[in-house]
Amino acid sequence: MAVENPNTVDTSQKIGSLLLKNPIITASGTFGYTNEYEEFMELKSIGGIVTKGITLNPRQGNPQPRIKEVHGGLINSIGLENIGIQAFIEKKLPVLKENNINFIVNIAGESPEEYKKIASICQENEINAIEMNLSCPNVDKGCLEFGKDEESLYKLVLEVRKVFRGALIVKLGSNVSYPEKIAIAVQNAGADAISAINTVKAMHVNINKNYKGFKFIKGGLSGQSIKPLALNFIYEIKKHTNIPIIGMGGISNLNDMLEFFAVGSDAIQIGTGTFTHPNLSEKLAFKLENFMKVNGYNNLQALIHSLRTEDMNKNGND
């Protein structure tokens, strides 16, 4: 690979109309609404942030306990507690703008109408990018249900596409039978990108001391333990789609990130990794740039292309 100027590499990436300084974004629900992580890192060092999932009306969320750490990750049952779109527009949007943060608003609805309404409000407020959460495992109504069957999903995304002109990202989860059908539906409906994966339905069990009965917590699993699932999901949907994919699921170091690029991601998100290392996304941005310099990739496309060139479809170990 020829290097023109080894001191400058172009890490930028484009997702629909959304320009990213680099392909590293922080994931919904793990980074707050705005500049909460300013105390730990330089927010401008990363491509962007995704806000906590926002619904039409404020949501109380699920009762405690909401968190259970398990081997290689955690199960959460937050239940989309959030301030609602009005409060977001009034209180958080100005902060995002003042601080010049590149952001994507994650939205969730209990019905197709709600998704459409929130998306229109985002459009009216000139928000550049939204991520439709069609895969939250922690709420009774909506969300995951729409993300499961390709026909209702297609209709829903199509409706939202009609009212939202910015970058439209649709977030999918692995709790589905035919990932490729779902992904194709999203693409056909006119989404600009797919992001995946959301947390995976999971359960933690605690057997009572006298072996009579047990306690449990159900929720969505995230963190390192879901990385293999995420990689497979992205690899499978990549075969059938050509819109950008934003990959996530357990990314905690540079190599994880490269694996996600290799199987088909054009950008990545960091979720649970931020809990372990609050400045992980900043560190990875730095490491990626450095890696590209050292290995002579002068732009991100070159690196991604290289990672995908050989053995794309080979089975096997090292």
Partner: peptide, 16 residues
């Protein structure tokens, strides 16, 4: 005390 995930106020894991 509570069960914390982020410990920084962003995840709502410890909300009461």
């Amino acid at each position: 005390e509570g069960d914390f995930a982020c410990g920084t106020g962003v995840c709502m894991g410890c909300a009461i």
